[in-house]
């Protein structure tokens, strides 16, 4: 019973498919060569009666080099291994992806096998609110929750998890019978812990803040933001705009008190118009000058250290 007729019947198809489908060895990429090796390994495992091993090899081969022959062999191996739901999905993937290129006979056989498997499987519609949650069944990815696409699973108990960004994940367990089952609907509340409070203040009269390119808001401003980095742009009439990035951590309030500089001068145009952003170079210069005022000329000390001219100067730590 383990040496299934379907597997054997695929070999001829697959051999010919591979001959025509794979490029010659000298033109193959490493992935293609590995895919062919895995395919041959799958054939050997199947011949030896190891359907599970064959399915694994065919699955890896198909991932490296998608091919209708490999997928067909995978579907058959999964069925032989007793993994009806996965086999049903593989048959349907074969029809969806390659239905237009495989033979009419192969297409009819895939449809018949998928239909026969469907009779043995449990069907359940899983939805989420908000829509679009990613599903996991028994801790394995199972696509997107959709009222239009019932999941096919082996009858029995399964663990369903729905995840959606910004929402709390939800998990339920259901015992499914063959055929149609009551739908599972997930309500996904906001993930409160993924938000933090940002408060922006400024002593500058008339200052407004724009967060992440939104509309300008008067200060002080408090808002709930998703965890992560955000851009805060502060503006005030007659002042230079200031942009800061702030990291919001879940549940942790952040207070940002910002001053903005007067807009004079805006952009120095001349060669000699540079100014210092940080005070330290001049403070040090002043100390030097004061200390040397008793006898050493400041010029001797300062000439070699002339800074480069610039409209903004910043010293990194």
């Amino acid at each position: 019973m383990t040496k299934r007729v379907p597997c054997r019947s695929w070999f001829g198809f697959l051999a010919s498919a591979l001959c025509f489908g794979l490029p010659p060895a000298e033109a193959q990429t490493d992935a293609e060569v590995e895919a062919q090796r895995l395919f041959e390994s799958g054939v050997a495992a199947s011949t030896a009666g190891d359907a599970a091993g064959a399915a694994e090899a065919f699955e890896r081969s198909h991932a490296l080099f998608p091919h209708p022959g490999t997928l067909k062999n995978l579907a058959a191996s999964l069925e032989t291994a007793g993994r009806a739901a996965e086999s049903w999905r593989a048959w349907n993937e074969l029809l969806d992806r390659y239905g237009a290129v495989i033979s009419e006979a192969a297409r009819a056989e895939a449809q018949a096998r998928a239909a026969a498997l469907d009779q043995r499987l449990a069907r359940v519609v899983v939805t989420s609110n908000p829509a679009g949650a990613q599903l996991e069944v028994d801790d394995r990815p199972a696509g997107t929750a959709s009222p239009d696409a019932p999941l096919r699973l082996e009858p029995g108990e399964h663990r369903f998890t729905a995840r959606l960004e910004g929402r709390e994940a939800a998990t339920r367990t259901a015992n499914l019978a063959a055929g149609d089952n009551p739908p599972l609907a997930f309500e996904l509340p906001f993930a409160v812990a993924s938000f933090g409070t940002l408060r922006v203040e400024s002593p500058t009269a008339g200052a407004t803040a724009t967060i992440d390119g939104g509309s300008a808001e008067a200060l002080p401003l408090s808002c709930e933001l998703e965890a992560g980095e955000h851009e805060v742009r502060l503006e005030a009439p007659g002042h230079l705009a200031r942009v800061e990035r702030v990291l919001i951590e879940p549940g942790t309030p952040v207070r940002l008190e910002l001053e903005v500089e007067t807009a004079t001068p805006t952009t120095p145009g001349g060669e000699g118009g540079g100014f210092w952003d940080g005070p330290w170079p001049w403070v040090i210069g002043g100390v030097l000058a004061a200390g040397l005022a008793g006898g050493i000329t400041a010029g001797v000390l300062l000439a070699p250290g002339e800074p480069v001219a610039g409209d903004w100067r910043v010293r990194m730590p």
């Binding site: 230079l240 705009a241 805006t266 952009t267 910043v314 990194m316």
Partner: peptide
């Protein structure tokens, strides 16, 4: 290090070129 920023209003036709000097420190 935590990035620092500066805004420049370009109110004149010759506001550019603008020269920004970033000096190396001891750690970064």
């Amino acid at each position: 290090c935590g990035p620092t920023s500066r805004g420049f209003r370009l109110s004149a036709t010759d506001a550019l070129p603008l020269r920004l000097v970033i000096e190396r420190g001891e750690t970064y």
